[in-house]
Amino acid sequence: MAARILVAKPGLDGHDRGAKLVAVALRDAGFEVIYTGIRQLPVDIATIAVQENVDMVGLSILSGAHMALVRKTIIALEEAGGGDIPVVVGGTIPSFDVEPLQELGVRATFPTGSSLTDLVAGVHKVLDQHAAETEGTSWTS
């Protein structure tokens, strides 16, 4: 059974070339991918994630507003009962924001320029770690 991944774009930034590249690459790698479309409110992303019972949420943010939007999304996920869903973030993420994002609970960051190969490997790693933590099955996609 393939892991389900929600590729989501919070905020008003409409640049979704990266989000779609990631969606296609994950699909080609065997994952089941749901794409929210652009301009989603964090609370709506959380609702979709819980309703669709996804195994991971990937946020794509290129507006520079990643700190505020990730914080809002993680809080919304907790409130929606999806606090255990691992969150990863891609986009224009400066290196000095990686640690603060991890402190918010982000499992991995994929800054602009990351290769799709590295991204797919990183997603596998996060899912495997999460599965080990929750003593579930290990995803092989």
Binding site: G11, L12, D13, R39, L41, S63, G64, A65, A68, L69
Partner: peptide, 22 residues
């Protein structure tokens, strides 16, 4: 900025992080 482009005002709490940004 994106709020002005998408039809929101600067005092809208849904878009506060985007005011004056791009």
């Amino acid at each position: 900025d994106l709020p002005s482009q998408c039809g929101y005002d600067s005092d809208d709490s849904d878009v506060e992080e985007e005011v004056g940004k791009v």
